[in-house]
Design a binder for these strands. Structure first.
Lengths: 245, 245
DNA sequence: TTAATAGTGTCTATAAGACAATATATA
DNA sequence: TATATATTGTCTTATAGACACTATTAA
């Protein structure tokens, strides 16, 4: 950043934004009741292989704006308030045979019902973050999906629905089912509830009810996520000596 | 990524890599024995304000290679095996008045003794990650430093010396002093030791000794970091039901 | 009353945090 | 021996994990 040469004297890469859109698809035959963590794959006419939604960035447009626009125009879905999360910059010089490109890869999660309008495929992923179909995507997009899935699973160990897949207010069962789908494992009801309790507040739904019943059984109480005091809250912090901090 | 147009038809940004090089500078008057977390600042002749080391990336060069080369040529220091960590991409359209630029910002830590050869300044930072001098750097580099410091402090709560500032093998006191400097607080000796013990293995130094004495007092045992089973080890994991996983 | 789902009491094991004692060196 | 630093015993409190029980609804 410290050169006095004109910017135009430097060769410049093409910079793309690619987005792994993740969701929990309703349960199939597998794993009984548990939904499946899945990723949105586009199949453009002129491409041999499936790709993630993405395009090159335009001047005077931020990355966040680009993400939103890509989802709207390429995937034909409304991202709403969902926050895209930077994964990393993919910079292998040979990642695109057309020339020198960088990909600023992002992950983003959306509730399944907002993806059905899209003309894209929703493909489940396995434990290692590969597509269950074994499909090979274009460019390095399989790797982007793997990293997106890994980061997402990691975060779902630590906090209640950090990607906002569940609409508030929700019941503990709804919350747990989403976590089970993301993590790909059944979770213990009692321990899960107690863990999450510290990060939730009781709430009412639009109708002012403090609990809901689905069709049978005891009605469940409603919760919203407590505005989290910090991402690091649930991890250990080193013990300060004396009263410092 | 899905266009069939030629890459050259798209406008392209200038892409820079900027690096917050962090270190623990030896203790000054403040806080008794505790070193100070500091950042390396360049003062090029032709620039009004201090800047972080950085430059535009070149074709067929990875970001990692660029980081290494920047540190060697601009900061005149040898990064060795230190791993640069991506912070995020700074993309404010107005961040550089010369034109459209992105900065792929990284953080990296090096032991203080490897920085003295550099012609750069080593400036301590305060609790919020600002330079203690109140100095304003060029571009958005103050913000890069703040984020670098925040991420680094967060990681030093969770693991023993994750940025490899201490040379192996080390004593628990050496390790604790580095953590105190990074976190800017004194830590309890006994609890710190027990916390770290799970992440350390006993070791010998070059001379084959299993402990060292500095000048006075009981000699301290030597440790190396245990190859960590995973970054998430020290955070809670949700309880699986049954035997699944 | 039964089935289904929600939620809690409580026991055990483990870990955190704090205090103080013990251990091993030099001067 | 006095002093300095390192390390551990142990007590208290908090939390995790597991099991089984209680609670509240619909059919």
């Amino acid at each position: 950043m410290s050169s006095v040469k004109r910017l135009s004297e430097f060769p410049r890469p093409s910079v793309a934004v690619d987005i792994a859109v993740l969701t929990v698809a309703p349960a199939q035959a597998t794993l009984a009741d548990v939904g499946e963590l899945s990723v949105l794959v586009l199949r453009p006419d002129h491409e041999l292989r499936g790709v993630l939604p993405g395009r090159f960035i335009r001047e005077r447009q931020t990355i966040a704006e680009t993400v939103k626009e890509v989802l709207e125009t390429k995937a034909r879905l409304d991202p709403g308030d969902a926050v895209p999360r930077l994964l990393r910059v993919f910079d292998d010089p040979d990642r695109d045979e057309r020339g020198w490109t960088l990909s600023i890869a992002h992950a983003l999660a959306l509730p399944a019902d907002r993806l059905w309008a899209s003309a894209a495929d929703i493909v489940p992923v396995d434990r290692s973050g590969d597509l269950v179909t074994g499909e090979q995507l274009g460019y390095d997009h399989n790797e982007i999906v793997r990293e997106a899935v890994t980061v997402m699973r990691d975060r779902y160990e630590t906090a209640p629905d950090p990607y906002d897949l569940v609409e508030e207010p929700f019941t503990l069962s709804e919350l747990r089912r989403v976590h089970e789908a993301v993590l790909g494992a059944r979770l213990r009801k009692d321990t899960f509830n107690r863990r999450m309790a510290d990060h939730l507040d009781e709430a009412r739904d639009e109708a002012g009810r403090t609990s809901v019943r689905q069709s049978v059984g005891r009605p469940a109480r409603l919760y919203v996520k407590r505005p989290d005091r910090s991402y690091t809250d649930t991890r250990w912090r080193l013990p300060r000596a004396d009263g410092s901090s």
